[in-house]
Simulated scan of single mutants.
Amino acid sequence: MKKNKNLKFIATILFLFVGFLFVDENFIQHDSNYNESFLNKIEEFLDIFGNEYEVTANSPYYKIDKNPPQFSEDDLKMSPDFSNYSELDELNRVGQANALIGPDSMPKAPRGDISKVYPTGWHQKFYKFVDGGAVYNRCHLIAYQLTGENDNWKNLMTGTRSFNTKGMLPFENSVANYIRDTGKKVRYRVTPIFVDDELVARGVIMEAYSIEDGGKKINFRVFVRNIEEGVKIDYKTGRTKIDKNNIIK
């Protein structure tokens, strides 16, 4: 009953708002300044219904930081699209990846074969209780759907299946959907976190900011954990074994 009342309220508001559009149509056509102001009001009105690109669900695989992404003013300047990847370190581990992503960056063809890339700590094993069986994925720091980077060794790390699909993917999808829907650009950065000389990252810090609307729609900093329920990971080597006590909460 309460849900129906809410729907009726929203429908009433929309009806009144649409009526307002038609009543003022003639005036709008003769005043360009009013047009701009009026369109801004429309955007404000639509914001009442929330930000459809925001990832709000709780997950054991990521933790959303209350602080905004740590981009400088220079980082947020408009420019042609780009993607930059750190050189592999002395242990062949990946480093920070940076990008400015827009419609032109996004791939026009399906992803190719990446099976010939072997990131550090790659010791694949299969467990029946893991989605797809394989405990590890070759995980893109910056997703293929965002920049079209395929078998770039500087952009692929060893990550668990759940790290990839339950941790990083919701945020990657939110950025991709925003760019497709609006045609606007997003500043994007992913930083892998290694402890000492470990070959498998403990996780990554993902940051994103929609430049042209001042971070109104895309604005997050999140730590994604490189973990898998029921599996114990030796982060120093990448080797894994069953751990029935490892129940992710």
Score class of each variant (00 low, 15 high):
residue 175 V to D: 01
residue 179 I to N: 06
residue 244 K to H: 11
residue 220 F to V: 12
residue 229 E to S: 14
residue 121 G to M: 03
residue 248 I to C: 09
residue 208 A to V: 06
residue 178 Y to D: 06
residue 153 W to Y: 11
residue 74 D to R: 07
residue 188 Y to P: 01
residue 183 G to H: 14
residue 4 N to G: 03
residue 63 K to V: 07
residue 86 S to D: 10
residue 211 I to K: 10
residue 57 A to R: 13
residue 166 K to Q: 14
residue 228 E to L: 14
residue 102 G to H: 06
residue 210 S to R: 03
residue 19 G to K: 01
residue 144 Y to P: 02
residue 67 N to G: 08
residue 11 A to C: 11
residue 215 G to T: 02
residue 52 E to K: 15
residue 7 L to T: 07
residue 238 G to E: 05
residue 182 T to G: 14
residue 64 I to P: 00
residue 160 T to R: 09
residue 3 K to T: 12
residue 206 M to V: 13
residue 171 F to K: 08
residue 127 Y to W: 12
residue 249 K to M: 07
residue 95 G to T: 02
residue 132 G to S: 15
residue 154 K to T: 06
residue 61 Y to H: 10
residue 45 F to Q: 01
residue 34 Y to K: 08
residue 58 N to Y: 09
residue 37 S to T: 15
residue 81 D to M: 03
residue 178 Y to E: 02
residue 81 D to H: 05
residue 9 F to E: 13
residue 177 N to A: 12
residue 10 I to L: 14
residue 235 Y to W: 07
residue 76 L to H: 02
residue 59 S to Y: 07
residue 140 H to A: 07
residue 30 H to R: 14
residue 89 D to Y: 04
residue 52 E to C: 05
residue 243 D to Q: 12
residue 54 E to I: 08
residue 34 Y to T: 08
residue 2 K to S: 13
residue 240 T to G: 06
residue 237 T to G: 12
residue 181 D to P: 03
residue 18 V to G: 04
residue 58 N to V: 11
residue 65 D to Q: 04
residue 25 E to W: 06
residue 142 I to T: 10
residue 221 R to V: 08
residue 62 Y to I: 07
residue 80 P to F: 02
residue 94 V to M: 10
residue 162 S to R: 02
residue 229 E to Q: 15
residue 52 E to F: 00
residue 91 L to V: 00
residue 57 A to M: 05
residue 2 K to R: 14
residue 79 S to H: 06
residue 161 R to C: 12
residue 80 P to R: 12
residue 78 M to F: 04
residue 105 S to R: 10
residue 22 F to V: 15
residue 18 V to W: 08
residue 160 T to W: 10
residue 36 E to H: 05
residue 201 A to G: 00
residue 205 I to C: 01
residue 215 G to Y: 08
residue 154 K to N: 15
residue 162 S to C: 03
residue 102 G to I: 01
residue 21 L to R: 10
residue 156 L to R: 10
residue 70 Q to N: 12
residue 143 A to W: 12
residue 249 K to E: 10
residue 217 K to T: 04
residue 5 K to L: 15
residue 145 Q to C: 03
residue 209 Y to G: 02
residue 140 H to G: 06
residue 47 D to P: 00
residue 247 I to K: 15
residue 19 G to T: 03
residue 149 E to W: 04
residue 27 F to S: 09
residue 249 K to C: 01
residue 79 S to Y: 03
residue 140 H to D: 04
residue 243 D to T: 11
residue 100 L to M: 11
residue 168 M to G: 01
residue 105 S to A: 11
residue 213 D to S: 14
residue 106 M to Q: 15
residue 39 L to P: 00
residue 188 Y to D: 02
residue 154 K to W: 01
residue 134 A to C: 12
residue 137 N to Y: 05
residue 158 T to G: 08
